Simulated assay, not measured.
Amino acid sequence: MQNILFVCLGNICRSPMAEFIMRDLLQQQGLSARVQVDSAGTSGWHDGEDMHGGTAEILDEMHINSSGFRSSKVKASDFEHFDFLVAMDHDNLRQLEALFGVHPDKMFVITDLVPELGYHGVPDPWYTHDFNETRTLLQAACQQLLHKL
Protein backbone atom coordinates (compact mmCIF):
# COMPACT_ATOMS: atom_id res chain seq x y z
CA MET A 1 0.00 0.00 0.00
CA GLN A 2 1.27 3.44 -0.94
CA ASN A 3 -0.03 6.65 0.62
CA ILE A 4 -0.06 10.08 -1.03
CA LEU A 5 -0.84 13.40 0.65
CA PHE A 6 -1.53 16.44 -1.53
CA VAL A 7 -0.77 19.71 0.25
CA CYS A 8 -1.76 23.32 -0.37
CA LEU A 9 -2.28 26.33 1.88
CA GLY A 10 -5.89 26.02 3.04
CA ASN A 11 -6.91 22.56 1.81
CA ILE A 12 -10.04 23.83 0.11
CA CYS A 13 -9.01 24.45 -3.53
CA ARG A 14 -5.93 22.82 -5.06
CA SER A 15 -5.12 19.87 -2.81
CA PRO A 16 -8.69 18.54 -2.61
CA MET A 17 -8.96 18.81 -6.39
CA ALA A 18 -5.72 16.85 -6.74
CA GLU A 19 -6.92 14.29 -4.17
CA PHE A 20 -10.15 13.54 -6.01
CA ILE A 21 -8.65 13.64 -9.51
CA MET A 22 -6.01 11.15 -8.36
CA ARG A 23 -8.60 8.92 -6.68
CA ASP A 24 -10.57 8.88 -9.94
CA LEU A 25 -7.46 7.97 -11.97
CA LEU A 26 -6.60 5.19 -9.51
CA GLN A 27 -10.13 3.83 -9.69
CA GLN A 28 -10.04 3.87 -13.51
CA GLN A 29 -6.78 1.87 -13.42
CA GLY A 30 -8.02 -0.56 -10.76
CA LEU A 31 -5.41 0.63 -8.27
CA SER A 32 -7.63 2.06 -5.52
CA ALA A 33 -6.83 -0.83 -3.20
CA ARG A 34 -3.07 -0.31 -3.62
CA VAL A 35 -2.83 3.48 -3.28
CA GLN A 36 -4.52 5.69 -0.68
CA VAL A 37 -4.86 9.42 -1.29
CA ASP A 38 -5.62 12.31 1.05
CA SER A 39 -5.04 16.05 1.23
CA ALA A 40 -4.22 18.67 3.85
CA GLY A 41 -3.31 22.32 4.23
CA THR A 42 -0.33 23.96 5.81
CA SER A 43 -2.37 26.75 7.43
CA GLY A 44 -5.31 25.04 9.12
CA TRP A 45 -7.39 28.15 8.38
CA HIS A 46 -10.28 26.08 7.02
CA ASP A 47 -10.13 22.99 9.27
CA GLY A 48 -13.38 21.06 9.13
CA GLU A 49 -14.79 23.07 6.21
CA ASP A 50 -15.95 21.76 2.87
CA MET A 51 -13.93 22.43 -0.28
CA HIS A 52 -14.29 25.69 -2.19
CA GLY A 53 -17.35 25.84 -4.44
CA GLY A 54 -15.13 26.31 -7.50
CA THR A 55 -13.31 23.07 -6.78
CA ALA A 56 -16.56 21.22 -6.14
CA GLU A 57 -17.98 22.55 -9.41
CA ILE A 58 -14.96 21.35 -11.41
CA LEU A 59 -15.15 17.89 -9.84
CA ASP A 60 -18.89 17.74 -10.52
CA GLU A 61 -18.23 18.63 -14.17
CA MET A 62 -15.74 15.76 -14.28
CA HIS A 63 -18.35 13.42 -12.73
CA ILE A 64 -16.12 12.85 -9.70
CA ASN A 65 -17.91 12.35 -6.39
CA SER A 66 -16.30 14.50 -3.70
CA SER A 67 -18.87 14.01 -0.94
CA GLY A 68 -17.62 13.66 2.59
CA PHE A 69 -14.60 15.93 2.17
CA ARG A 70 -13.49 17.98 5.18
CA SER A 71 -10.46 20.24 5.22
CA SER A 72 -7.63 19.41 7.60
CA LYS A 73 -4.17 20.65 8.52
CA VAL A 74 -0.90 18.79 7.98
CA LYS A 75 0.00 16.79 11.11
CA ALA A 76 3.39 15.75 12.48
CA SER A 77 2.46 12.11 11.91
CA ASP A 78 1.87 12.69 8.18
CA PHE A 79 5.56 12.39 7.36
CA GLU A 80 5.70 8.83 8.66
CA HIS A 81 2.29 7.80 7.33
CA PHE A 82 2.61 9.06 3.74
CA ASP A 83 5.07 7.85 1.12
CA PHE A 84 4.72 11.10 -0.83
CA LEU A 85 3.82 14.59 0.34
CA VAL A 86 3.04 16.46 -2.86
CA ALA A 87 3.02 20.26 -2.56
CA MET A 88 1.00 22.48 -4.85
CA ASP A 89 3.67 25.19 -4.92
CA HIS A 90 7.12 26.09 -3.57
CA ASP A 91 5.73 27.98 -0.56
CA ASN A 92 3.88 24.83 0.52
CA LEU A 93 7.02 22.76 -0.06
CA ARG A 94 9.09 25.15 2.08
CA GLN A 95 6.53 24.84 4.87
CA LEU A 96 6.66 21.05 4.64
CA GLU A 97 10.48 21.18 4.70
CA ALA A 98 10.36 23.41 7.78
CA LEU A 99 8.31 20.71 9.51
CA PHE A 100 10.02 17.57 8.21
CA GLY A 101 13.36 18.51 6.65
CA VAL A 102 14.39 18.26 3.00
CA HIS A 103 13.42 14.96 1.38
CA PRO A 104 13.23 15.46 -2.41
CA ASP A 105 12.32 11.83 -3.13
CA LYS A 106 9.34 12.08 -0.78
CA MET A 107 8.32 15.76 -0.90
CA PHE A 108 8.14 17.77 -4.12
CA VAL A 109 6.07 20.30 -6.05
CA ILE A 110 3.48 18.59 -8.25
CA THR A 111 4.31 20.64 -11.35
CA ASP A 112 7.87 19.27 -11.24
CA LEU A 113 6.27 16.14 -12.74
CA VAL A 114 5.22 18.09 -15.85
CA PRO A 115 8.04 20.58 -16.58
CA GLU A 116 6.95 20.85 -20.20
CA LEU A 117 3.91 22.86 -19.06
CA GLY A 118 6.19 25.68 -17.85
CA TYR A 119 4.65 26.11 -14.39
CA HIS A 120 6.59 26.34 -11.13
CA GLY A 121 3.62 25.42 -8.98
CA VAL A 122 -0.14 25.36 -9.35
CA PRO A 123 -1.49 28.92 -9.16
CA ASP A 124 -3.99 29.27 -6.31
CA PRO A 125 -7.50 29.65 -7.75
CA TRP A 126 -8.56 31.29 -4.48
CA TYR A 127 -6.72 34.31 -5.90
CA THR A 128 -6.75 33.70 -9.67
CA HIS A 129 -10.37 32.46 -9.82
CA ASP A 130 -9.23 30.15 -12.64
CA PHE A 131 -10.31 26.71 -11.47
CA ASN A 132 -10.08 25.41 -15.06
CA GLU A 133 -6.34 26.16 -15.13
CA THR A 134 -6.01 24.27 -11.84
CA ARG A 135 -7.87 21.29 -13.30
CA THR A 136 -5.72 21.23 -16.44
CA LEU A 137 -2.48 21.28 -14.46
CA LEU A 138 -3.62 18.73 -11.90
CA GLN A 139 -4.96 16.30 -14.50
CA ALA A 140 -1.59 16.30 -16.29
CA ALA A 141 0.46 16.12 -13.09
CA CYS A 142 -1.66 13.40 -11.50
CA GLN A 143 -1.35 11.34 -14.66
CA GLN A 144 2.44 11.62 -14.37
CA LEU A 145 2.31 10.77 -10.67
CA LEU A 146 0.36 7.65 -11.54
CA HIS A 147 3.17 6.66 -13.93
CA LYS A 148 5.76 7.43 -11.21
CA LEU A 149 4.02 4.96 -8.88
Score class of each variant (00 low, 15 high):
67 S>E: 12
138 L>Q: 13
110 I>W: 04
83 D>M: 06
19 E>L: 03
1 M>G: 07
18 A>S: 14
75 K>G: 03
18 A>D: 02
20 F>M: 02
119 Y>M: 07
114 V>Y: 00
89 D>K: 05
98 A>Q: 11
68 G>P: 09
108 F>R: 00
106 K>V: 06
133 E>C: 11
144 Q>W: 14
90 H>E: 12
55 T>Y: 06
48 G>E: 05
58 I>S: 03
69 F>P: 07
23 R>V: 04
146 L>V: 13
117 L>T: 03
72 S>G: 03
149 L>D: 08
100 F>L: 03
147 H>L: 14
15 S>D: 04
123 P>L: 02
94 R>W: 00
51 M>N: 07
48 G>R: 02
89 D>T: 15
138 L>R: 12
39 S>Q: 10
112 D>C: 05
25 L>R: 14
26 L>Q: 12
50 D>W: 06
100 F>C: 10
95 Q>V: 08
32 S>N: 07
12 I>W: 05
105 D>H: 01
69 F>V: 07
86 V>A: 04
149 L>V: 14
145 L>P: 12
54 G>H: 11
102 V>L: 10
124 D>Q: 10
82 F>Y: 15
92 N>D: 14
55 T>V: 10
146 L>R: 15
149 L>G: 03
29 Q>D: 13
45 W>N: 03
20 F>Q: 01
137 L>A: 12
134 T>K: 10
107 M>D: 00
97 E>D: 12
10 G>V: 00
100 F>H: 09
83 D>H: 15
82 F>E: 06
94 R>C: 01
37 V>N: 03
80 E>T: 08
77 S>L: 06
73 K>L: 01
138 L>V: 13
121 G>D: 11
62 M>P: 05
64 I>N: 05
111 T>H: 01
78 D>G: 01
87 A>W: 06
92 N>W: 15
71 S>R: 08
130 D>V: 04
13 C>I: 04
41 G>D: 02
120 H>E: 11
82 F>T: 05
52 H>W: 01
125 P>S: 13
141 A>K: 12
116 E>M: 08
73 K>Q: 11
28 Q>S: 13
2 Q>L: 08
40 A>F: 05
26 L>W: 03
80 E>C: 02
38 D>V: 03
102 V>N: 15
29 Q>T: 10
96 L>P: 00
19 E>M: 07
114 V>G: 11
126 W>L: 07
108 F>P: 08
5 L>G: 00
